[in-house]
Amino acid sequence: MSRLPSLLPDDPTAPFPPVEQALRQPDGLLAVGGDLSPTRLLNAYRHGIFPWYSPGQPILWWSPDPRTVFLTDGVRLSSKFRRALRSSTWTVRADTDFAGVIEACATIPRRGQRGTWITRDMRAAYRQLHSLGHAHSIEVFDADRLVGGIYGVGVGRMFFGESMFSAVSGGSKVALAALAWHLRDWGWPLIDAQVENDHLLSLGARQWPRERFVARVSDLCNDPGLQGVWTARLGDWPAARLAEPQATRRTGA
């Protein structure tokens, strides 16, 4: 008989089961139920666990093996894309339109996907995390138009990427590369990308065994971080900087 995932208690401070108990099929399913309170979400991230479920399902908690990650000095932008960025007038900002980024991630159609896993409850939960200084967005603007972005959760010196979008081709690449640029400068070495796909792999994502990932996350989450709004740290940052020669080293291209 197949083993079932653990049922979480109502208490948001209750510990998650050990990630080693996650199912092999479907890969990484660890627990069911609970809530999306800040306490439970932050506890999940600190242990290498994240929520992922579709409308009509209970909350499902995952810790897949292997885990998809980016090194902050390992995001790859092609030479062709960097050349195009030399004349770009796009601007990158942080935490100026978190709601717009998460809404776009939830609603912009994606090839091969129907609907979204970013439910209304998920959006509300991450907006609350943002208001508490834990969730952040990197936004790419063409003048006043939001053309790309990424959002996720920062704990200690660890960034857990949740989703990114492009309203114009290349918008998500710029958001990811700019995020990696700044995290590297701040001494944050790793971005969690959760589950692999061809697009992430083309940008330099790699696979880590879950045991290695969880051990690294435990160390990084216990370090001092940068809780609070990141807007002033980035200012209006020109996307064209990603085309500079030093960006080749910084983004691993």
Score class of each variant (00 low, 15 high):
Pro17Cys: 00
Met1Ile: 07
Arg212Glu: 08
Val19Gly: 03
Met122His: 08
Ala125Met: 11
Gly228Thr: 11
Gln25Thr: 10
Ser172His: 10
Ser137Gln: 10
Val147Glu: 08
Pro64Gly: 01
Leu242Lys: 07
Leu200Lys: 04
Ser78Ala: 13
Gln21Met: 09
Arg184Gln: 15
Asp192Asn: 05
Trp181Lys: 09
Val217Ser: 15
Gln57Glu: 13
Trp61Ser: 02
Trp181Cys: 00
Thr119Glu: 06
Gly149Leu: 00
Gly204Pro: 02
Ser88Leu: 00
Glu162Gly: 14
Trp52Val: 12
His136Ile: 01
Asp95Leu: 02
Ala193Met: 15
Ala239Met: 06
Leu132Gln: 06
Ser137Cys: 02
Gly225His: 12
Tyr45Trp: 14
Ala99Gln: 04
Ala125Asp: 04
Thr68His: 04
Arg111Cys: 05
Ser87Gln: 15
Tyr151Met: 01
Pro238Lys: 01
Asp35Thr: 15
Asp10Gly: 02
Gly204Leu: 00
Arg250Trp: 03
Pro51Met: 12
Phe98Trp: 05
His134Val: 07
Ile138Pro: 07
Val75Lys: 03
Ala167Lys: 07
Glu139Cys: 10
Gly235Asp: 11
Val140Met: 05
Ser6Gln: 10
Glu196Val: 08
Pro17His: 06
Phe81Glu: 14
His199Ala: 07
Leu190Val: 08
Thr107Gln: 06
Val168Pro: 02
